[in-house]
Design a protein around this nucleic acid. Structure first.
Length: 117
DNA sequence: GACGCTAAAACCG
DNA sequence: CGGTTTTAGCGTC
């Protein structure tokens, strides 16, 4: 046992990340950095790792999380390709438009609430 | 444009 | 169970 079986096979850190992303409303997007900073972490990469192996794929709107450069970032374990295209289309369906693979309106960025967590 | 840092998970032994 | 490698990023040079 790799001591990582806590609840459903997710570590406490992953739960924090999922909880943070879960509170992201539709039509809004957050950056990995914002989520990482909210949970008290300095590495956005750790958040990406948790999302990549997320056991709650449809439960957690990982597609609402984008890179700090306002790029789509990665999706389905790929930084580019059809996966990213699908992510762009999905966000567009939620009202978030992208231009040249980048967020068109920065106002769609989700503003973290301190009382939520 | 290239390099380095960082933090957690997955993989291998 | 321990150690090593890779990663859906970010920041800086």
């Amino acid at each position: 046992m790799r001591s990582r079986e806590q609840r459903g096979g997710v570590t406490p850190f992953q739960r924090e990340v999922y909880d943070a992303i879960r509170m992201i409303p539709k039509g809004r997007v957050a950056t990995y950095r914002q989520v990482a900073a909210m949970i008290g972490c300095r590495s956005a990469r750790a958040v990406g790792q948790a999302l990549k192996r997320n056991p709650f794929a449809p439960a957690v709107p990982c597609h609402r999380v984008i890179a700090s450069d306002m790029t789509l970032g990665g999706f389905q374990g790929k930084t580019t390709g059809s996966a990213v295209t699908a992510k762009e289309a999905l966000l567009r369906s939620e009202g978030v438009f992208f231009v040249d693979g980048r967020l068109a309106d920065k106002g769609r960025l989700w503003q973290p609430s301190a009382k939520g967590k």
